[in-house]
Nucleic acid binder design. Structure first.
Ligand code: NAD
Ligand code: NAD
Lengths: 227, 227
DNA sequence: TCGATATCGATAGTATAATATCGATATCGG
DNA sequence: CCGATATCGATATTATACTATCGATATCGA
């Protein structure tokens, strides 16, 4: 029985937050930031729900998970909510990360500064292609694969990002694990599992194909509905 | 009550497939393709489950959704499974699409030929930056935003991909909808909703932040478990 | 030939998440 | 000052997805 939730026995209060809620948190955060910059101090679940196309009850339960308390007829304090969400998501302190595969997607990710604001600071990239090694991409150095493991251990890197072709994904993952990395954010279409890298490594497979599959399917449905 | 499932009243057999199943389909497909190129003709749920870190029962239910029937003690025919999945996902015929925002991420997506194999063929890109307009990116022309709506209607484009900054996402979406586009694949962190573009437009928000949030959270948990 | 066994497929049960209900609260308008 | 009302927060219900159980089946090996 694979432990998809990643939870272990000694659970804390904070740990009871369901992952669907966690996944909605970034959207709340972004929306609240907008309100904040508009100078709004309080906001109700009703309003949030309307803007994000959710049910008010859903929003209320999600926000309750952060520990923030609201006031009847008024709503929740915007500033406190933002802070609470950042704490829950660990956005208050970022982790340093390595990226493997400085190609098209890898370069785009390296150039995306916003990740730093949401807990991820990519400090070095690695590639097998000697033409890329030694270059800087968006101010991040591209290094040779051979240096990965040692450097990761010395810098105590905990997160690895994989943007290599599917055929190379397993190798990339193993290189990261040799460097003592604890969590892998995998953009390749190969679904990495504990079999590839060991059971205690946290893996998050992005799978854009899944997202696209849902889109295409819904589109097909509407078409079928108009015969 | 937002209809997140996208289902309407007149549902067909094929329509009863739950979205979690749809999301797992691409992984099955990729795995089966590997078996196929190894010359394997039949495969059991047990094996698939082991390789993809799922429960055998889960796999069996998912595959049953495709209509493929298996044989006790042997398993399912690989070729038939692949075909059935492609049909369910609509991968047998691709849709043409426009992309808005030919920046870092947009360029990476334009260069990713594999999307065509999974139902998405991006035939043109659009950008507001005059320095980008007129160029080709990975053999796809970058055109001015003003041309989007007319061209989309003329070419009967149904899908739009958004890779502009969050501040511009709503504008991009509206431009696409003016062009008669029915579905939007949105990579910006702004969660698009029916409020932005009209209730009948299908929206799939990718939200890498959600994915990363889950990763960071699980990482935080393991750390907390080692005091 | 025949039994042991792996796997399918159907049914049943459980866990999780989403939604509904309702009393409590405190603000706002009159 | 006081009642109407929007909203919170707790509890209950429903829906959905996941997991377990078990008989049926047909292959494989003896
Ligand atoms: N580009 C996209 O839009 C997109 C979308 C979805 C998924 N993906 C996936 O992301 C991954 C990267 O896509 P891309 O378009 O950037 O490809 P790419 O070919 O542009 O980049 C791949 C990079 O990985 C490097 N590489 C190859 N093997 C390596 C190894 N063993 N060790 C280290 N580095 C190695 C290559 O040198 C190259 O620089 C692929 O798995 C792709 O399927 C990409
Ligand atoms: N790069 C990444 O790895 C990454 C990761 C996650 C999310 N995203 C999101 O994807 C989007 C694009 O990111 P990026 O890194 O490619 O940014 P970018 O700045 O490189 O590209 C944005 C492009 O959009 C164009 N643009 C701006 N306003 C426009 C408008 N109104 N109409 C048409 N085009 C317009 C710009 O000219 C530019 O070419 C952003 O919303 C970003 O948050 C990017």
């Amino acid at each position: 029985m694979p432990n998809l939730t990643g939870q272990d026995e000694r659970e804390e209060i904070s740990h009871a937050i369901p992952y669907p809620t966690i996944r909605r948190m970034p959207a709340y955060h972004r929306y609240l930031k907008g309100l904040q910059s508009d100078g709004l101090a309080m906001v109700s679940c009703t309003r949030i729900a309307e803007s994000l196309d959710l049910e008010p009850i859903q929003v209320r339960k999600d926000l309750a998970m952060t520990g923030t308390v609201g006031r009847p007829r008024i709503g929740y304090p915007v500033d406190a909510l933002i802070g609470a969400i950042e704490t829950v998501l660990g956005w208050d302190r970022w982790s340093e990360a390595f990226l493997v595969g400085a190609g098209n997607l890898g370069s785009a990710i390296l150039g995306y500064r916003a990740f730093k604001a949401i807990g991820l600071n990519i400090v070095a990239a690695f590639d097998i292609d000697p033409r890329r090694v030694g270059k800087m991409i968006h101010d991040v150095p591209v290094l040779a694969m051979e240096k990965l493991a040692n450097l990761a251990r010395r810098m105590k890197i905990r997160i690895g990002v994989i943007t290599v072709p599917a055929e190379a994904a397993e190798d990339a993952a193993k290189a990261l694990v040799r460097g003592g990395i604890e969590a892998i954010w995998n953009f390749s279409p190969l679904a990495l599992t504990g079999l590839h890298v060991g059971k205690d490594v946290i893996i998050e497979n992005v799978s854009l194909a899944s997202s696209l599959a849902v889109l295409i399917r819904r589109l097909g449905q509407t078409k079928a509905a108009q015969p």
